[in-house]
Design a protein around this nucleic acid. Structure first.
Lengths: 225, 225
DNA sequence: ACAAAAGTGTTGACCATACACCCATGC
DNA sequence: GCATGGGTGTATGGTCAACACTTTTGT
């Protein structure tokens, strides 16, 4: 019996993205480590799984210490494992992923902050690898699922939507006018009847995402890009 | 310190598919359990991770006890977790996935066998859920990656390829002649110069998959279907 | 009137579908 | 010759990228 068991440390690490819709910036949540190893390095918010917790419990717990959560849905990414050569302890990290609204997310405490993906510090452990994996998943979800509408306000303009896609996928992923017609043709964006007046220029139609109209499409591999 | 640790049982479970190219059948590898719980039920080949093993080691070890492995590449699927309400032990199952050639795979021992997906017995634990997850991944990989060529013989006809897709994705996923031209247009199938003479009818051209010609395409989301 | 931003339309190239049809072989 | 399966071609309709154009606002 003893032979079959192994010394384990089970942890969770979270790759939490947020999009600043106003200034078109993509952020990831990092925490400054206060303990060894990698003291004073930045890393992903993670923790050891405690007695009586599930994996998801642990992931939500550590996040709730760093940011205010509401309606946060975590998705499992991948399980990274690594056995320490000296101690023979097997370290397991089950990583999770989420996308939030930057404007609605309050940070708690001093040691957590949003970092642009364009200027990342050196990260602790293999967190850079986990982050890259999460970023790949983010872009993938944006193309194949309606994740964008979870992070936009209830009413949004097509330009808001387009900017969000640009921020995550990069400029020139698609022509704006073609993006418009493709999205409108799907039929799950309904005209709210109101307009967005923002200074000079023609006011933009405010749309609303209609989950019921989207539902029948959800099993098809429709491309948003 | 004690408070942070949790009673853990770490296991791996494998969803191993094989395709019988000759008779167009898709199989999954199941093992008849000899111990409690779920004694005499069929289940996925899995094991507890031992001292000094990595996750992958354990996955390959249990498979090597059931089938002859050669060039088997396992891909991680998902980590299922479940805490026992009575003992408070946290059970973790890191599942893996692979696709093999039925014709080249020798089973070892009496308690492992191939089962058609169309007539599955009741499975132990949550193995039905894991299997469904793996099946979804299999179909997905077939559409977006050249996994089919790992499982076909070195020389194959376009009809062999088409039959393989039919077996996994179901009939009528695409017209045969359109499937032909789409695949040939990619340019990574090279005419071997030889023909397959199988009884009556015009002999079919034998093709070979060219990894070098495929390489530049690998980062594009090309659709095989 | 003019600039700015939203929104529409047009064009040509490409691609998918559903077939019809031709080709090479065994009997 | 003819059945059988391999392989090619084609007409239609749709989709996509690029870009020109029109509309509605503030100043």
């Amino acid at each position: 019996m003893k032979k079959e068991l192994t010394d384990l440390r089970l942890g969770v690490d979270n790759v939490i993205f947020s999009v600043d819709a106003q200034f078109n910036r993509l952020f990831v949540l990092l925490v400054k480590r206060e303990q060894l190893p990698y003291k004073d390095y930045w890393g992903l918010p993670g923790t050891i799984v405690r007695q009586e917790e599930s994996l998801e419990d642990a992931a939500y717990r550590i996040l709730s210490e760093k940011i205010q959560l509401k309606n946060l849905y975590l998705e499992q990414l991948y399980t990274f494992s690594n056995r320490d050569q000296d101690s023979q302890v097997l370290y397991l990290s089950v990583s999770h992923f989420a996308l939030l609204r930057y404007e609605e997310t309050m940070l708690i405490g001093q040691n957590a902050s949003w970092h642009s993906l364009l200027e990342l510090p050196k990260l602790a452990f293999n967190h850079r690898e986990i982050l890259n994996y999460g970023y790949k998943r983010l872009r993938n979800k944006l193309e194949y699922s309606p994740i964008a509408f979870e992070v936009l306000p209830e009413l949004f303009t097509l330009n808001n939507l387009y900017q969000l896609y640009c921020t995550i996928l990069g400029e020139n992923f698609s022509d704006y006018s073609n993006f418009r017609s493709r999205l409108l043709k799907f039929g799950f964006l309904t005209d709210s009847g109101t307009k967005a007046y923002v200074g000079i220029g023609r006011p933009a139609t405010l749309y609303r995402f209609d989950p019921d109209a989207f539902a029948p499409l959800k099993d098809y591999p429709l491309l948003f890009v």
